[in-house]
Write a protein that binds this DNA or RNA. Sequence first.
DNA 1: TATGAATGAGTTTTCATTCAT
DNA 2: AATGAATGAAAACTCATTCAT
Lengths: 193, 193, 193, 193
Amino acid sequence: MSPRSKEQFEEIREASQRKIFDASLELFGTKGYEATSIALIAKKAGISKGLIYNYFDSKEALLQAMVDDLVSVGDDMIEKIWSDDPAKTLENLIQSIFEWFRQNENLNRLLIGLSTQVGKFQFVHDMAKGKMDGYLIMLEGLLQEIGFEDYQTEARILGTLFDGIALHHMLMKEDYPLDEVERMLIKKYCMKP
Amino acid sequence: MSPRSKEQFEEIREASQRKIFDASLELFGTKGYEATSIALIAKKAGISKGLIYNYFDSKEALLQAMVDDLVSVGDDMIEKIWSDDPAKTLENLIQSIFEWFRQNENLNRLLIGLSTQVGKFQFVHDMAKGKMDGYLIMLEGLLQEIGFEDYQTEARILGTLFDGIALHHMLMKEDYPLDEVERMLIKKYCMKP
Amino acid sequence: MSPRSKEQFEEIREASQRKIFDASLELFGTKGYEATSIALIAKKAGISKGLIYNYFDSKEALLQAMVDDLVSVGDDMIEKIWSDDPAKTLENLIQSIFEWFRQNENLNRLLIGLSTQVGKFQFVHDMAKGKMDGYLIMLEGLLQEIGFEDYQTEARILGTLFDGIALHHMLMKEDYPLDEVERMLIKKYCMKP
Amino acid sequence: MSPRSKEQFEEIREASQRKIFDASLELFGTKGYEATSIALIAKKAGISKGLIYNYFDSKEALLQAMVDDLVSVGDDMIEKIWSDDPAKTLENLIQSIFEWFRQNENLNRLLIGLSTQVGKFQFVHDMAKGKMDGYLIMLEGLLQEIGFEDYQTEARILGTLFDGIALHHMLMKEDYPLDEVERMLIKKYCMKP
DNA sequence: TATGAATGAGTTTTCATTCAT
DNA sequence: AATGAATGAAAACTCATTCAT
């Protein structure tokens, strides 16, 4: 009733939502969206099934909210890559992307899985398409500045490579030489004299 | 005594199985495995639910049989790429792979979706891992023969690119410049003097 | 077309029916009627599902035909027990019944299982009731002739014992001392001086 | 925070489970386990199919839980038979068993039906075997104390009789003279001077 | 007579969602 | 805000029976 309890409510809401997001991410990301039941999410989050419906209208709304939340975190990473030296900026970009791969295995797996279903989860397709286009333009600019002749082709190759790496890493997990491939790309694309 | 000959029965079985495979591929490949019901497959195939269980013990057994069947078709494509000139062989390989991408969109989408589930569908992971290793070795050999200095790195890049292309093509469908990328790769990797 | 082939047909029919009866008895008698599928019977009998429907209108009709057939065989056993000495006749009767228990485990198990379902399989109830009444009267007569004072009570006890033995034997199979119990009963009821 | 107390939830669960047990016992016990569908149980219990699976993992788990629950009730009956006079104890035992027959027709019918299936429902066989052995030992002790010479043989006869009575009662229902047979047994076995 | 592919109604089971408290 | 009992629609799967050959 006092203004104080309103803040407390807010905190409680925040905490519960976080618990739900964490559990959802882990389960959606490993078992897949369809194969994950609300009951299981509730159990993993340590709350009741009913509570999930206090925060989200449906299973699909929960998915969308969770993805939106996490992807926005990813966007922040890109902010910090800019440097005066385009080669350095590209290096930062590559490092950021590999860092993302390392830290967001479950989300990546989930997004790839979702984009597999045509017609459903349009927001995932739209988001992915948007990001890709953005990266492509960014890469073209950087490679041109660095001095690549066929910078358009190379930009497409590099962009495609990123997703190929995501896929390979998803398939092979710890067997995939993420660090080595990162070094290789930096050497190949950021060392142009 | 037997009213239909063994061969007639065999033909009938073959035809029904094909109908089931076709419907399964289309539905699994667009909606995903979990989101596709046996009832829907039956409807699309123009048969009864029960008949599917005359041919396959379970939904998962159907999936596996269908994947095995189609992947074996893919293996046959590789047989025909060999030439005396390694550059020509690589060109054939690239063309075969792009042809595969063009003709097997649904299967690719399905396999990617399946490999998203960790722990389940182990046969998909095993198969994918096996193919990847095979391609990597093949690519290394060809690139070395063609005369690439850092042929190991380049082989890994090329192998990764293939899967990145599959992913991009899956996401963008007709928006993805498959033909252009194919030409680009052939130019970049098969024209080494 | 010739009269000869008619006989042959008859032989074939006989043989097929026997195969079906044998398979049905074994399966119904071990797994139970409901848990046994027509497909399994056909497989065990080495014939096709369809053929069963050439001989019997339905699964239940097959059951009834099979039971009727086997029970009539049992009736024949009783014919041969009669002797001038009532004690000897009773001994023969007991031996016949124990012989029946030994040779018709599956049928006994089936009949007991069927009589478990109230309302269904009325013919089993009727048959069982009829046999029981018949045995009771027979036992009363024999025990009276042998010289038992309370022959009515003893007849009921003996009749009940037979079915208790059937049940115990069914539950314990080879662990049940059928031979010993047989000797015991003969000693107790057929040795009245 | 919790809207209903733990106790309230417990009560609700108890009540629902009881409804399910009651419906199951009646249906399993009259139609048999296999011939009774979950849908029918739900209908008879006045609840939804789904709710049954909130309480039991499977149809078979429901069966086992129900049997365990009821058999434990039966065990309590035996506790109260003991007296200083072995003849009186035996009389109490006989009365308890007949009381059990009168009150648990459906359960008896169910158990007999289940033990008919070889290989399945092992827990029923184990339970039945255990009870039988226990009764046999108890009967031997009592008959010896009462002064029967051939107490081992008589114990086996009496034990077998009990199950024969169960079977006859099951078959003939109200036509079976349960009261008369009870008096007869008490007279025969508990009046030894 | 004999086959087995095909059906469809019915079975067990799952699960997102609702709701009284 | 939080619980978990309850629902009902839909899922996977089974099986007696039919039928063209």
